[in-house]
Design a protein around this nucleic acid. Structure first.
Lengths: 340, 340
DNA sequence: CTGAAAGCGCTTACAG
DNA sequence: CTGAAAGCGCTTACAG
């Protein structure tokens, strides 16, 4: 590692090589063209090329305006914290916006109880934090409390909390509007008895979708049951049990595509005509499901755009000293398929 | 941002608050217990808690052994560079290993021609680089050349290249062995005419799978055709055209599950019995496909473990000055389903 | 337009 | 076991 250190050219090496001062090199590297003559500039650029000079971020950050990296924390029970397509898209959008602005993304996944002892809490190495938090409501609130206690700007995805007085911005999709769209669609088609299937874990996004559904239907759905949405067979058993007790509904709405797909296949296995006898609609389109037969009617999530907008909001916050808006909500698009 | 700076406690603040020198604070923070008395330690820890002190990574890295972050570069045509489940799992495994060791992951996605101008090339802010590169062979080679030219340790995923004399470690799964497993399985079941369906883009992993398949079958498959693996209908049309010209094969092997799923659904749509008349086998299990009916016979990729192993190899390289091994290859597991 | 000095917040190397 | 000094590689603030 001494080898690494010794091999690395510094700003002084470049200055010597180009026959200018270190300041001039710095000005060239930072594109402060007004301070550097064309000739000096050319010589510096040649020297940089020759020596393979790369500016050391640590040194720049120390003297300059702080770290040029944004942290993205995904709080998840599972170590496979990017397995969810929604999260993966969101992270990609965020990373791309930051990279384009010459910022960096520092990514980490943590279990709900791992935040307190994490390096994130003990070290200052990012200029701001974005967070996507799952888990029980109290655990989520605790995570948010800790993050906001850091005294750094925070962007929180897919939550609705009080932002008054906090250096906090909410970035989310219009789950309520999406739910309403589903409700209106089903109502228009004459569906009267609608079964809503929700993940067991309560979650603002899900609650908003359900509230929207009720608004669109013009009243609460016939029933709303909770299922283990990660367990394909459990979803199917729950649906089977409900049908055994109450008969076939006119429509099943899955609060996400995993649930809706499982429900769909259960109905098809029973020989139920979809959408003839029962309509099935999902939420948050995943490409893998789009390919299944029949194609699920669902809503397209702007996950990638959520990441982009979060990045932009954070960069402007860092520049301007405050979030311009503290609640950013993007629309979800209705995606007609063959099941609803 | 002055507000941020002013509000942040430094090591000196903690030292003053605890009535010790800055050195002692540093020793406590770094767990150099042999240099600090219990009493001093307790006072420092209380002061840290009271002031909400967090060590500034930039300052530490500047004087210390360099940046404590590893870069992960995903070179991809698409901005949605985490859309592939394989990649997402791999990144999660890598991030978790690094975080556990108090290292950080710096993530970026770039188009093949974007690397040259990227901040990555102009800035030194990570101690080593991991890379997952897609695209045409020449473009991939160029990316690798640039990365290795940085004078930093590089871990390359899913490639087989010469490592002699390079500060480079290959981390991959045993695609050849997986292919052989499929071939042996199909041969044992008596399949004689096997159609292999490959992505259009050539790619070492795919070639290895195909070579393994041939070895397992005891000879080349009946035919190998290239398809746009991201285009569901294109895959189906290609299969339809092949069958129109050559009749039904005994088995179809898709070089990945996307292809195999599309092929499977095409066969079922035609009323072909699977696996009675035609067997279908995939590669690289994705959870979304696992839920389809009938369940695809495929191979489980150790993507998450690849990320973990890469992280471990990199950390040891940074510690020890060289990669202990330059070629790490993990097995893939056969995952029996209902289609083959 | 160019440069010499000071300093960012830590850790290294050394003295007590 | 504890601390004063020097320095990591940049940028800021200022003088010419």
């Amino acid at each position: 590692m001494n080898a690494d250190r010794q091999g690395r050219a510094t700003i002084k090496d470049v200055a010597r090589e180009a026959g200018v001062s270190a300041m001039t090199v710095s000005n060239v590297v930072n594109n402060k063209t007004q301070f550097v003559g064309a000739a000096a500039r050319a010589r510096v650029e040649a020297a940089i090329e020759r020596l393979g000079y790369r500016r050391q971020a640590s040194a720049r950050n120390l003297r300059g305006a702080g770290p040029r990296s944004i942290g993205m924390v995904i709080v998840d029970e599972s170590p496979a914290f990017l397995a969810n397509f929604f999260t993966a898209q969101l992270v990609a959008g965020l990373a791309n916006v930051l990279n384009r602005a010459d910022w960096t993304l520092t990514l980490s996944g943590l279990p709900p109880d791992g935040l307190a002892a994490s390096a994130l809490m003990r070290t200052y190495d990012v200029g701001g934090l974005c967070a996507m938090v799952s888990g029980a409501p109290e655990a989520r609130r605790e995570v948010l409390r800790r993050l906001c206690g850091l005294g750094q700007p925070v962007v929180l995805f897919q939550e609705v909390v009080e932002t008054e007085g906090l250096d906090l911005c909410l970035v989310r999709q219009d789950d309520e509007g999406g739910g309403r769209r589903v409700g209106e669609h089903l109502a228009r088609l004459g569906a009267r008895s609608v079964l809503a299937m929700l993940p067991r874990q309560s979650w603002p996004a899900i609650e908003n979708r359900l509230a929207g559904l009720a608004a669109g239907l013009g009243g609460a759905p016939r029933a709303a049951i909770s299922v283990d949405h990660d367990d394909f067979s459990a979803v199917q058993e729950a649906l089977g049990a409900w049908i055994a007790a109450h008969g076939l509904p006119d429509a099943v709405w899955g609060a996400n595509d995993q649930i809706a797909s499982a429900a769909l296949l259960h109905l098809l296995d029973r020989g139920v005509a979809v959408p003839g006898r029962v309509r099935v609609v999902g939420f948050n389109d995943f490409p893998a499901h789009r390919h299944a037969r029949p194609r699920l009617t669902t809503l397209a999530s702007p996950a990638y755009e959520l990441g982009e907008r979060a990045g932009e909001a954070m960069l402007r916050r860092l520049e301007g000293g405050r979030f311009e808006t503290q609640d950013l909500c993007l629309p979800v698009a209705f995606l007609p398929g063959e099941t609803g």
